[in-house]
Amino acid sequence: MAMWVFGYGSLLWNPGFEVAEQRMATLPGYARSFCMRSIHHRGTEAEPGLVLALDEVADARCDGVALRVSEGQEDTTLAYLRERELISSAYLEKMLEIGLADGRRVTAVTYVIDADHVQYCGGLPLEEQAQIIARAHGGRGPNREYLLNTAEHLHALGVADPDLDWLARRVAAISA
């Protein structure tokens, strides 16, 4: 059986594993937002950044991509993703059903926020998010780079995300 991974943030532009197939996909019941404080990759414990996570929200949907893992690479890919995504246990690994643009429904490895975790910060005003993202920097680089890469890739895929677009413009203005 094929292994699928749902990408909605950095997995869009940096999956880090061999992708055999990529399809546009939708995950119902979750919303993409900057609701996780980043203390490793895009910030520090002293000055946390923000990264995207999937927050469970009734009637929401998140558009992203389904990435099919190359056959024979499932175990290696899962180990890689767990090391990358579960670094602080703020994400929960779930097997969730997603809808592919071609009509298929598949189960995908999906990383969603643990709303009870100390790094959860859902509901921050967009201006506050922009201020944090503009200044934060972590082990994988500036927080603004993460935002801009994600926004650019969503545009390239034809996925509208008005909050990310606003944040990209605002962070660019703050950083200028």
Rank of each mutant, 00 (worst) to 15 (best):
I113R: 00
Y111A: 08
A115T: 15
G72E: 11
V69S: 03
T107K: 14
R61T: 10
Y146I: 00
L78H: 04
T77K: 01
R82Q: 13
L126F: 07
R144K: 11
A134N: 08
D75I: 05
M95G: 04
V65G: 00
S88E: 14
V69D: 08
R61I: 04
L78F: 09
S70E: 12
G141W: 09
L147P: 12
T150P: 09
A90R: 00
G103Y: 14
A136H: 05
E74F: 03
A66S: 03
Y111M: 08
I87L: 10
D114A: 11
E128M: 05
Q131F: 05
L81Q: 04
E128V: 10
A66F: 08
A108E: 02
A134H: 04
L126N: 04
Q73S: 13
Y111W: 10
Q129T: 10
C121R: 04
K94L: 15
H155Y: 05
P125T: 06
I87N: 06
H117V: 12
R84Q: 01
E71S: 11
R105G: 06
A151C: 03
N143S: 09
G103Q: 12
E128G: 01
I113H: 03
S89A: 13
L100Q: 11
Q73P: 00
Q129R: 12
L100D: 07
R82S: 05
L81W: 02
G99Q: 14
A156T: 11
R104Y: 08
G141L: 06
I133N: 07
I87Q: 07
G64T: 02
E83Y: 05
D63W: 05
A156P: 07
D114G: 09
R84T: 02
A101Y: 10
A79Y: 07
E152G: 08
Q131N: 13
A66N: 03
G123W: 13
R84L: 01
E145V: 06
V118Y: 10
L147F: 01
D63Y: 05
E93T: 04
A90S: 15
E128C: 02
D102Q: 09
V118D: 14
A79I: 07
I113D: 01
E145G: 03
A115K: 11
G122K: 09
H117M: 09
V118P: 12
G103R: 05
H155F: 02
H155W: 11
V106Q: 07
R140T: 10
Q131K: 15
